[in-house]
Design a protein around this nucleic acid. Structure first.
Lengths: 341, 341
DNA sequence: TTGTACGCGTTATCAC
DNA sequence: GTGATAACGCGTACAA
């Protein structure tokens, strides 16, 4: 328990009114840029504001207006992923951009423990935010039920559980996975494997489904290695595993660029050449793709736009102009061919 | 301009009091776990809370208590760096951990434009947070003057401008740079260069100063390449530049691991072997260091602990038990020897 | 054009 | 133990 005392008292509208010799109502009007104030009063008030060092208290304003002009950006991730996943940063920046444009403060909240989870729920309930963008919620996330119960405007990034009716934005993971697998097969690969990840989330499961679709009868469950997270080390170990299971493998679909980067390093260590001996493709088109050797062929995912779309959707709900789900429709992806195929 | 209306009315203490047949005061006491409430009243109130679906409104509570139980985590970075810098994530997690432990909500605010900057200033003024952790403030940051003016408890991560008297936590960049440069020289290198970055910030400038110190008379300004940011591509281009200026170079101190990773790739492309032909060292001991080939010798920087120390410092200020500056003292760093030297 | 007075939902200080 | 009731700082009808 912290035992902090109140902060030093700051000037209020009252002080300004006294100083300027007008009423609080008039001060309030000036502060909110309303018409019907004499130039004289306005000027006196502005001077008074400066003199007493007045700054408005939003807690009071929130209480009166019942709105906070703030939107939560909630990230629910285990440490590792939060640090490794380049998409989250881009989504965050995208969201911040549109919120900033409509004069909303984005406040991002990270959930990193059960305790965090409860506190964030309280925070949402408390009227600190008018709405929320939720990134990478789990299928069974209690956060979603909290949000539903409070009926606070929210939009998810990524497809929510089928039972939920929250608006969301996302991409067609399955279609994109199919497309890039087809590209890989199109370069003449015969024994194609996948390093999958995060099968407990829609993105992970859908990418595997797309891979399976593309391969059709050629699909071989033995050539799929599974991991918890979309991370570099999973790529290294996954690739080693894959080479053990099938030394003849000549094509690999990695569920993320980070995984692909790990796979490339493992392949190099094993003496295989890319793309001559084996073709590798990733997913995300994150900064990982450009720091690989060779440059990675991958699926471009519009991470920043996802953030923008999600934020726009929340604002739309706030205005009461919410559209159908999914909020922004599915955003476009496309295959970026580089050197690894 | 958004034109949102108020959200649906939610149950208040008043409703609970009515429902339970007691006064608001008693309800408030129960809610805050205070003593002197009859078991009977307590039970009735708890049932009433559940029945009317009461959730406390923090705006009102904030107004009454004049505290928000929230701490701002302010990141002031250009996009690229925010996405590339692995330290920020670790610092953030560290801060969240200690704040979470003392039941404070961490809200992170990113400043990404002039407009953001002003809005965050308003946000801070508005009583939304009781204090703030500020990461990577610029030397001339207006944020710092805002914070000083409002006298809101804050702690910086990284050394502030000399003129400022804000508490801060950090590491001894200069000493650490000297140490790792000495290690590099100790492996027998004769022509040692540096790929420097962010000279407009204390970290960047201090690392260069430490490098210079370690080299003493052997220091050669020509062998220092400068960059804006601590990023991978700066490492590639910087290394190429360095090789052009001095083909005989056999040692490189990169101002960050990301830069070192770029340098390693550039060296490989140029046909130099590491560590045989040239030794490379980095700074940060971030995840970059472990995905390099060869594994990178670098300075371990306790990023997570920096976040923890900064948060603890803010909480201490809140409690009125603030210590001298720097807030947490300088945190320890050490050289981690791996394969690149 | 300006002032008054009430409401926002809690906490806190009293008497009882 | 409990119940009134005055803050907390601001927005906003309504009256003047």
């Amino acid at each position: 328990m912290s035992t902090a005392g109140p902060r030093p008292r700051r000037a209020t509208i009252r002080d300004v009114a006294l100083e300027a010799g007008v009423s609080r109502g008039t001060v309030s009007r000036v502060l909110n840029g309303e018409p019907y104030v004499s130039a004289q009063a306005r000027e006196a008030i502005e001077r008074a504001v400066a003199r007493v060092g007045y700054v408005p208290n939003s807690a009071a304003r929130n209480l009166a207006t019942r709105r906070s002009q703030a939107i939560g950006f909630i990230v629910h991730e285990p440490h590792e992923l939060f640090l490794e996943d380049p998409n989250i940063g881009a989504i965050l920046l995208g969201a911040n951009r549109v919120l900033s444009g409509s004069d909303h403060q984005m406040v991002s909240l990270v959930i990193d423990s059960e305790r965090d989870s409860r506190r964030v729920a309280r925070y949402l309930s408390g009227g600190f935010v008018d709405g929320a963008v939720v990134v990478s919620a789990r299928q069974d996330d209690t956060l979603l039920t909290t949000i539903a119960r409070l009926s606070i405007p929210a939009t998810l990034v990524g497809r929510p559980p089928a039972t939920s009716r929250v608006p969301w934005v996302g991409i067609d993971n399955k279609g994109a996975a199919r497309a890039i697998t087809e590209h890989l097969v199109g370069t003449g690969r015969r024994r194609v494997g996948m390093i999958a990840a995060a099968l407990d989330r829609d993105s992970g499961a859908d990418r595997l489904a797309g891979f399976r679709d593309a391969l059709g009868p050629a699909f071989d469950r033995r050539l799929v290695v599974e991991n918890q997270l979309y991370e570099y080390t999973a790529g290294r170990t996954g690739m080693i595993e894959l080479l053990e299971r099938e030394p003849e493998v000549d094509g690999v679909f990695a569920a993320s660029d980070a995984i692909a980067a790990g796979a490339l390093d493992a392949l190099r260590a094993a003496g295989r050449r890319v793309p001559e001996d084996v073709g590798v493709v990733g997913f995300d088109d994150s900064s990982w793709a450009l720091r690989c050797q060779p440059l990675l062929t991958t699926v471009h995912q519009p991470a920043r736009q996802l953030g923008e779309a999600a934020a726009a959707s929340v604002l739309a709900q706030l205005r009461g102009t919410a559209t159908d789900e999914p909020a922004g429709g599915l955003l476009e992806t496309h295959v970026v061919v580089r050197e690894s195929t």
